[in-house]
Design a protein around this nucleic acid. Structure first.
Lengths: 212, 212
DNA sequence: TTCAAATAATAAATAGCGTTCATTAAGCCA
DNA sequence: TGGCTTAATGAACGCTATTTATTATTTGAA
């Protein structure tokens, strides 16, 4: 029985090794310019081997996002479970969790949002798509429950909490992507932190029933 | 001298003909699956000819966005110039302008936001990039001036108007892209209009100094 | 009207890259 | 040890963006 398990572990380790290599290459060259050969070389494998572990290039790319989605989930759960936070503090904690996830690995987060907004999504295996779906739904659920609680308490406006969660998610991804574009278009420096502060501030004020 | 001008016109017409064909093909197949041959066939030209008018596939794709950016500009200018609007009404007009632009050609707007958030941007000629830059800056300028006026009037919170414009833009693109993803991931129906309403509502409340 | 030069369009060739497949190597069990 | 399963390889395939050599068309002067 032990051999089966060892093989399982070895397979998983090789998968991770490929993911690490892919991440490096994608980060350096971008999705299109990174070739499967580049990645294979980085992982010290032959191109064909990668296909024993990932269906295709899109799927390998998408796999990078899974870990960060898991991390996001954990951070959000944490925010939800903290006791004794006012609703304002909880929004603030939400902001910090998201910014924290971004800082944990900015390139992968940007990748994830690129992915989210692209036809690549249509090329994934049902299994991987289901995993992504499950993780993102779970994150949104946590967020919307936080909002539901605030509405219950009468401090947030009475909108559908799921819609509020969608708006927050859209705001976060929108700001990240837009700041990234600005860097490319205008060669501007990175205002992400500042813009995100403003965005969350406005959002927090906007969903509060009364503002000082 | 008339010949020069006729040639100019003919060249422009052919460009447009290619753009129309490209739009149809990209819409139907998506960027990756659409081949230059498909587009050439749709335009009743040979593939090589397209390269006499567009530097490459990315640039052709990006060109689709130019017209919609121009349209957006016009709509926004219009909102800025309308007299006698309260600041609240102006925010509402802003929302309507953006939603209107979206409805004018949803696929192209989605394309534009995809483009904005991708490495494709790095493949464009300096000229096209400059055009895109000029148009998007112009739109953001109009928006930020509206905010500046509201701050002047003391009805909007005192944040940098450019930051507010960035946040609004990020919010708009974020909502459009996220609703689009949800359609793919969850096969959900389109809640764009509703989500956009909520988003603008929150934003409007968030930037107002006092809320009823 | 004619004809060289310029312009426009084409179709075929090129090159790069994702993906597949026939082959080889390694590890396992009887 | 020797067949058998699994893992890995790297060369071949096919597709497609882009280039280029060639052909057709238009222009403007002689």
């Amino acid at each position: 029985m032990g051999i089966q398990e060892r093989k399982e572990r070895e397979r998983e380790r090789r998968r991770q090794q490929i993911i690490v290599a892919a991440k490096r290459v994608f980060s350096e060259k971008g999705f299109t310019k990174a070739t499967m050969e580049d990645i294979a070389k980085e992982a010290e494998l032959s191109p064909g081997t990668i296909y024993l572990y990932f269906k295709n290039k899109d799927e390998l790319y998408a796999s990078l996002s899974l870990r960060i989605l898991q991390y996001l989930n954990i951070r959000l759960e944490h925010v939800a479970q903290q006791k004794g936070l006012s609703n304002d503090e909880r929004i603030k904690a939400l902001k910090e969790a998201m910014f924290d996830v971004y800082n944990f690995d900015p390139l992968v987060v940007i990748n994830m949002f690129h992915l989210q907004s692209s036809e690549t999504l249509k090329n994934l295996s049902p299994e991987l798509l289901a995993e992504i779906k499950q993780l993102s739904q779970s994150s949104l659920k946590v967020i919307s429950e936080i909002f539901a609680a605030g509405i219950q308490d009468g401090v947030f406006i009475e909108k559908h909490p799921v819609a509020l969660a969608d708006v927050l998610w859209a705001l976060f991804s929108g700001v990240v992507l837009w700041e990234e574009s600005k860097k490319i278009i205008n060669g501007e420096k990175d205002y992400l932190k500042e813009t995100l502060e403003v965005a969350f501030d406005i959002f927090g004020r906007g969903i509060s029933k009364s503002v000082a």
